[in-house]
Each structure stands twice: as structure tokens, then as C-alpha cells.
Simulated assay, not measured.
Amino acid sequence: MPVRARCQVNDSVPSVMIPQWHRGTTWARDAARAFHDEVAERVSAGVSVCPRTGQAHARGSYFTTRALEAAGIPVLELHADNVDARSTDGDALPRTVGDWLDRHVLAGG
């Protein structure tokens, strides 16, 4: 079974997780190596694994947010890097969530 680099997280997670569930087997080793090699090959060639994924994701998030808000559901969008917190102010998240709760949930707006 070939393991392919994918554009969506829900497609790439199995390429990483399933080999972990089968840790220690020849299949798992080969599957993880195939995924690694394909991504490394694309990086070396300067080819994007997922062209414009961020833009498509941002548009999808925007429309989802607008649809929820139009239905009267308060939405808080958090833009953060869940891998590297160095660019994040440690107090910003609790402050942002608290302010949003005060303005949009508790105040009914």
C-alpha cells in the first residue's frame, strides 16, 4: 500500500499514525519511510506538498464563521501556532477568550 503526502490534515494523519499503531512491524517501517521520502523529495524539488492550502483553509474558515454568525451563534476565531508558542504572548489567549466571552456570550451580543 503506497503512502502518499496529502493536502488535508485528515488525509495525512493516517499516513503518520497508522504506522505508529503498527510500530515494530516491517510494514510500519516501510510506510513511515515512504511518507517521509515523498515529502522530502517534494521539499528538495521546491514543490509545495499542498499548493495554496492555507488560502483555501482561510476561505473555508471565513465562510464557516460567517454562516455560524448569521445563524446567531457566537464565534471566536483563534489564530495561533499550536506547534511553536514562541510567537505567542502567554497571556494573550486567556485575555482574548475572556474578552470575547464578556462581549459576545455574557452580554448576548
Rank of each mutant, 00 (worst) to 15 (best):
M1W: 01
M1T: 06
P2C: 05
P2E: 10
R4G: 01
A5T: 11
V9M: 12
D11R: 11
S12V: 06
S12M: 06
S12P: 00
S12Y: 15
V13D: 00
V13W: 02
S15I: 00
S15K: 01
V16E: 07
M17I: 05
Q20S: 10
H22E: 04
H22W: 03
G24E: 11
G24I: 07
T26H: 06
W27T: 03
A28W: 02
A28K: 02
A28H: 06
R29N: 04
D30E: 15
A32F: 05
A34W: 07
F35D: 04
F35M: 08
D37V: 02
D37E: 15
D37A: 09
E38P: 03
V39Y: 03
A40I: 00
E41M: 08
E41A: 15
E41Q: 13
E41F: 03
R42D: 04
V43I: 15
V43G: 01
S44I: 00
V47Y: 01
V47N: 09
S48R: 13
S48E: 14
S48W: 10
V49A: 07
V49W: 05
V49E: 05
C50D: 06
R52Q: 13
T53A: 15
G54S: 12
H57V: 09
H57S: 12
A58R: 14
A58E: 12
A58P: 02
G60M: 08
G60T: 03
S61Y: 03
F63N: 01
F63G: 00
T65W: 01
T65K: 15
R66G: 00
A67F: 00
A67N: 09
E69M: 07
E69V: 04
A70C: 00
A71W: 03
A71K: 14
A71Q: 13
G72V: 00
I73C: 08
I73N: 02
V75S: 05
V75I: 06
L76W: 07
L76C: 13
L78A: 10
H79W: 09
A80W: 09
D81H: 14
D81G: 11
D81R: 13
N82H: 11
D84C: 12
R86A: 06
R86K: 10
S87E: 10
D91C: 05
A92E: 15
A92T: 06
A92M: 10
L93D: 03
L93Y: 12
P94R: 11
R95C: 03
T96D: 11
V97M: 14
R103I: 02
R103N: 13
H104F: 10
G109P: 00
G109R: 13
